[in-house]
Amino acid sequence: MDPLSGLIAPHVVIVAGKGGVGKTTVTAVVASAAASRGRRVLVVELDGKPTLGQWLHGVDGVEVMTISASEALDEYLRDQGFARIARRLSSTGVIDVVGTAAPGIDDLVVLGRIKALERAGDHDLIVVDGPAAGHALTMLTAASGLGDSVDSGPVRAQADEVRALLGDPTRCQVVLVTIAETTPVNEIVETAFEIEDRVGVQLGPVVVNLVEPAAIAAGRGPERGDDEPVAAEVVRAVDAALHDGRIDADQAEALTAVVEFAATRAEMQRTELARLRDRLALPMVVLPALAGSDHIAALARWLVEDADGRGATDA
């Protein structure tokens, strides 16, 4: 199976991960890859930043939508028949008061909007660029927290419907994103266990982003260290060239340093990938670190064309 299929199996995919690991990049890549397979994709982003709109501008079959908590709450109140009140609430900034009176209501109405979009059925796939890892847990537990404290009424109904969405693996899954470094691996393992324990939502494949190409040996799983001799061989060639006078000492030093640096990082990443595989019983999808402005399209091609299992490995 290619890496993409596991990522987009259910209708709604919520992408979560700590800041800096490339959560937004993964959202864009998954959306582009799915669209290239003919899916009608809706990308939902929650923080109002223009990044996804820019990256996915002009990609066929992908629509980008922003859902903000205050707008969602506003719309929710209108739907409940409080149009006039909603207007007054926004103008006085009372959403803070409502949000505090019923903690999690902002997260709940956002998830409620996503659920409504899923039900509308205008798209084959909804990819949500979720909040950063810590907040993701808060957001995903909002429905059960509120459902427990509110006995009846519109909030309770909304919470029940959101819980049904999150609890159904055929409708929704969470894709965690991390990078192959010690602390991020520890953190994602912790987050995965917490999400499993406290939310009961299906966890999809874990995406490991920004992996040095040298840590992904061609045609093999990422844990194999077969390029190690290659780095040593390259360093020997540099030494030989210095010895023959084909390069000078400064050049030899720079070349050796760059090769050793890449090899050290690749080795560290292989170790961390192996550790992640040991500790999490989840499929893993590896994305290479690519430079350049078209990295979204290049990574999307990697996900779709990579049918021989080079980037994806099953747990």
Binding site: A237, V238, A241, R246, I247, E253, A254, L255, V258, V259
Partner: peptide, 30 residues
């Protein structure tokens, strides 16, 4: 930053590596 040279220097180095594939690979990384 590796070494004092420029990007153009590295490109010239790779071109000068000729059929030394391993050396050219080192220049590619630089």
């Amino acid at each position: 930053v590796f070494g004092p040279g420029t990007l153009a220097d590295a490109c010239a180095g790779r071109d000068a590596a000729g059929d030394d594939v391993a050396l050219a690979a080192a220049w590619e990384q630089l």
